[in-house]
């Protein structure tokens, strides 16, 4: 168990490409941190630097109290679950799980006991003598988990571990991984491009884009107070509505409609979550609905207000029809962003 500290950690490649701009953050003991962002944002590079699979160009990385920049991956006291599981194809499940322990010169009776314990925890008892090629995707995933668990590491690293599973299994494993991490109390860093995984699993989310950390916060903070238009549009499905607005020093307008009171002056970007727009016959917001998406538990209405696209989330019993309607906003629904920089105002 350990905390992790990054101090201005930076990654540049020999060709000059800066994959990760200097990044600093702390992860406390037992915390589940999710690195999320689109592909190529640097999240995997960050994780691989923590694992020691990628050299750190500048800055210091601490695991526990020590700087581990030049420590071999095998000596960092970490365990990693890879996207394609990276099981050793020529070893049985038992050997796959026990391989790391064997290399640490742990007595074989102890290895057997630990493997058995992990297999129990992950329902792998019946498969211990099979080869990875004889397992289903979900079972391979469990073996990869087992391999990580038995090491009893200070730090768990996950590199998109669920992206090769089908949707149903993914939902199930999401919960299992989270529960396992709680039970073991191990610090974990989890990389994903799936914002649902980030929201549901994380104690804290780190949103990255283009090698830069856009925001660090709890799922609720990231969702409700996005630090930038990027975070606003990346987190949440459907994403936050972003309107071009105008602020006159007292009020913010979208089109002709005043939506929010603020002292800012000039052009702004106005962000409102779809579920924060409520159908209201007396509401100030005039919307023209074009398309209705029926999702069973609720409905999404897609349309325009003041010539800008808008999406509204309504309850399943709302009698939706296409055509004009009016709506109002929930209190504190509006996020304001600088229209130039995209930063939150």
């Amino acid at each position: 168990m350990a905390q992790v500290k990054l101090n201005a950690v930076r990654k540049t490649y020999p060709n000059g490409f800066e994959a990760v701009k200097p990044a600093s953050f702390d992860i406390t003991d037992g915390e589940f941190v999710v690195l999320v962002g689109p592909s190529g944002c640097g999240k995997s590079t960050m994780l691989r630097m923590i694992a020691g699979l990628e050299d750190i160009s500048e800055g210091e990385l601490y695991i526990g109290e020590t700087v581990v920049n030049n420590v071999d991956p095998a000596d960092r006291d970490i365990a990693m679950v890879f996207q394609n599981y990276a099981l050793y194809p020529h070893m049985t499940v038992r050997k796959n799980i026990g391989y790391g322990l064997k290399n640490r010169k742990i007595p074989s009776t102890e290895i057997d006991a630990k493997v058995a314990e992990a297999a129990n925890m992950l329902n792998l008892n019946d498969y211990l003598d099979r080869k990875p090629s004889q397992l289903s995707g979900g079972q391979r995933q469990r073996v990869a988990m087992g391999r990580a668990i038995v090491r009893d590491p200070a730090l768990f690293l996950f590199d998109e571990p669920l992206s090769n599973l089908d949707a149903k299994l993914r939902n199930q494993m999401r919960i299992e991984i989270k529960a396992l991490q709680r039970r073991l109390g191990v610090t974990a860093v989890y990389v994903t491009h799936d914002q649902v995984e980030a929201m549901t699993m994380a104690d804290r989310i780190i949103v990255m884009n283009g090698g830069v950390i856009e925001q660090i916060g709890t799922p609720s903070e990231v969702y409700h107070s996005p630090a930038s238009t990027f975070v606003a549009s990346f987190m949440g499905a459907p994403p936050m509505n972003l309107f071009d607005g105008h602020a006159n020093g007292t009020e913010v307008h979208v089109g002709e409609t005043p939506l929010h009171r603020h002292t800012h002056q000039g052009k702004v970007t106005v962000g409102i979550r779809p579920e924060d727009i409520v159908p209201d016959v007396t509401g100030p917001l005039a919307i023209n609905v074009n398309i209705i998406e029926e999702l069973g538990a609720h409905r999404l209405l897609h349309g325009h207000t003041a010539d800008q696209a808008v999406t509204i989330h309504v309850a399943k019993d709302f009698p939706a029809v296409t055509g004009p309607m009016t709506a109002s906003l929930k209190p504190d629904a509006v996020s304001l962003f600088d229209s130039e920089t995209g930063h939150r105002l």
Binding site: A51, G52, D72, A86, G100
Partner: peptide
């Protein structure tokens, strides 16, 4: 040989 398999070995075995 998949890169990740070698990396897994890198974590599992220092030699």
């Amino acid at each position: 040989i998949p890169r990740s398999v070698r990396e897994a070995a890198l974590i599992d075995n220092r030699s």
